[in-house]
Every structure is written in structure tokens, then in C-alpha cells.
Amino acid sequence: MNESPVVDQEAMQEPPTRMVAIDAVESASPILIEDVTVAYHRRPVLWNIDYQAPSGKLIAIVGPNGSGKTTLIKAALDLVPRAAGQVLFFGEPYGQQRHRVGYVPQRTSVDWDFPVSALDVVAMGMYRKIGWLRPVSRKYREAAKQALDRVGMVDFANRQINQLSGGQQQRVFLARALAQNANLYFMDEPFAGVDAATERAIVDILRQLRESGKTVIAVHHDLQTVHEYFDEVVLLNMRLIAAGPTADVFTPDNLRKTYGGKLALLDQLGEKMAQPRSR
């Protein structure tokens, strides 16, 4: 306790310097997640997540089922409410930076019986640019075709989407994200349930995106391929376990922490927070 004044001096000085540091890099950082907590029915599923993504990297979010990977993405994109914390995209709230952020949802999240063609779906990525009340003109249809071409799907442009295989559907989603021409992409399990050819095609596209300075954050399940595909890893299990370059962070020790059972007490307490009367 005698030392406390010295330590406290640091404590006093540290926050401002940290703030300055953040301000300096904010303009460059595609996403800054600060102290984000998300709760479903008062039960926290993500606790105090802090993360700042580097620009121009392929980043994997890795963690066991129910660890809040999809929730983190949705919370960042205001698709689920945050109980606490803030998220900044390129230094600004999401509302002002929507056009620079692309989202590729899980394939199961849409109705594939919907009467649209692959080309229609891709064009949907450009609606913001086209603007309200205006039809999709030839120019945008061409752009959509080009995006389809980049994922090797141009021959299927006029197919109804339920006549595509799982991998092809995923590629259409990817083409839509390309058409959005965002600077930061979120992808929810882009490799789930796709064939080997599609997986290769997706990886190629991801690398092209990185070449052109885009940042991709993907929820990823396959631990085998993390090293090969991604530059950065975020290990998540309700809490942020570790984050950083794949080589440093994707270690057996960290993985054990991530997958070694949920933090039992944390889980139990989350349960209690959902029902505060129990005390």
C-alpha cells in the first residue's frame, strides 16, 4: 500500500496517453471494439471485448460453438443490441461508415426459395450506390456480372438461387460483398459446407481483397487451415482470450484456454445475472 502513490501516478498518466494513441491510429484502424458486452435476456454472452483490427489483413475469429463469434459480428454491425461498449469503424460510429463495411451472413440465414437470380442477389450489394427509387441500370448489372466473374460464377448469373449448390451460393454471397466495394468485410463462416473448389476460390478472393488493401474478418471453424488462410487470429470464448498475428497467438496453449471447456464459473454466473432475484 505504501507504493501506491507511485503506481497511482502511472495509473493517472496512462489513460490519457492511451487515448492519444488510440486517436492517432483510429483513422487507420478499420474497426475498434471497446469494452463490448452483449447479453441475451440479461444473460451475458460476450464479456468486455476489446479489439482493434489492423488494416489490410485477413483476420479469423476462432472459438468453440456458442462462444459468441457470430454475436460479436452482429453486435458490431448493430444487428443485436450491445449492453455496453462502443464500436468504431474507421474512427466513426457504424451509422456514418455503413458504405465501407460489407457483411456476408451465414448461408442458412436467408430463404433460398426466394424468387431472385444470382445476378439480382449480387446487385443488391450496390443498392446504396444506386440510390432510392432508381432501378438497377445496365451499368450496375454489368458491375454485378463482373463481380460474379471474379468468383467464377458468371455462367450462373440468371439461375434462380435455389438451383445453385451450397458452394455456389456461398460464392454468390461473396460476389455480392465484392460488388459492395467495402473496405472492411465481415464473413460469417464463409467456408461452412462448401466444396474444395469453392474453398480454394474463396481463399483466392480473400487474398485479392487483401492485396487491394481491404480488411476481412471471418468467423472460421476449421482450425487446420487457420495458419494457411489468415494473418491474424482473434480467439474468443465469451471473453477475448487472445488476439494478434497468427504466428504469435495461434498457440496450443491459447487454444487450450479457448476450447478447454467454457470458463465454468463465468457461465454459472451469467446464469445468475439472468435471474438476479436468486439472492
Partner: peptide, 10 residues
């Protein structure tokens, strides 16, 4: 078709 995308597209 995709309300989430619609919202991000303004």
C-alpha cells in the same frame, strides 16, 4: 430477402 443487408444498404 435480407433485412440485415437492407439496413446496411441504407
Amino acid at each position: 430477402f435480407d433485412p440485415a443487408l437492407a439496413t446496411t444498404q441504407g
